[in-house]
């Protein structure tokens, strides 16, 4: 579960005031809103990359408001993947496990397992600049999932992809979510994407979040 309680944040004239939302455990939530309405800021507050002026963040039954990003048990996939420019795919996916000092065998097994699942097992020795947009997002997803986080946060992960790739990756996201049973919060401004993925739909508008009904034909 992800819970935001009265989150307030301000930068210049832009502000988020008293935002509350609950993403039920193991559900796939989609947060929609226009560009510049504060979706990414909200995600960064959940990640711990921005500190709210007031309010609290709970993940599962823990209050993580003051925890550093790395101790929140989250996996984060930013818009452009933000892969580490000098690391090959194998090292990107194994990064979180190396930080946790897991054995080389365990890291290798987990990397292979995720790479197979995400269809990037033939790319393990490539650098990010030799990957296509879709491959980058798959690797970013593998990197985020390697340490088995309880929560997956996705910031417009499909926005830079063409329509066909977008559909493929949406199917992959849904199957990974079902298989790993993580709580996911996915932000987008694309209605079709929301319809494909959302179990729960939120809209951020005018600095307020409200739960919205799922579009017709949603999964």
């Amino acid at each position: 579960m992800i819970q935001l309680e009265n989150i307030c944040w301000r930068a210049g004239s832009f502000q988020l005031a008293g935002i509350s939302l609950v993403v039920p455990a193991r559900s796939y939530a989609v947060l929609m809103g226009r560009t510049g309405c504060g979706k990414t800021t909200l995600l960064e507050i959940i990640c711990g990359l921005r500190r709210p002026e007031a309010g609290g963040v709970r993940i599962g039954d823990r209050d993580v408001t003051r925890d550093p990003p790395g101790e929140r048990g989250i996996g984060y996939v930013p818009q452009d993947g933000a892969l580490f420019p000098t690391m090959i795919v194998r090292d990107q996916i194994g990064f979180a496990l190396r930080l946790r000092r897991r054995s080389a065998t365990e890291i290798q097994q987990r990397v292979q397992e995720l790479a197979r699942q995400l269809g990037v097992d033939h790319l393990l020795d490539r650098l990010p600049h030799n990957l296509s947009g879709g491959e980058r997002q798959r690797v970013a997803l593998g990197r985020a999932l390697a340490a088995k986080p309880s929560v997956l946060l996705l910031d417009e992960p499909l926005s830079a992809l063409d329509e066909e790739l977008r559909d493929d990756l949406a199917v992959l996201l849904k199957s990974i979510h079902r298989e790993l049973q993580v709580t996911a919060l996915h932000i987008t401004h694309n209605g079709r994407e929301a319809a494909q993925l959302a179990d729960v739909l939120f809209r951020l508008d005018g600095g307020q979040v409200r739960e919205s009904s799922l579009p017709a034909g949603s999964s």
């Binding site: 930013p78 420019p85 990064f95």
Partner: peptide
């Protein structure tokens, strides 16, 4: 010229800012 995003991601994966 370097994006700070990869650094942010590394922090969510368990790094301190310095690391």
């Amino acid at each position: 010229h370097l994006s700070s995003r990869p650094e942010d991601v590394a922090m969510t994966l368990g790094c301190s800012r310095g690391r």
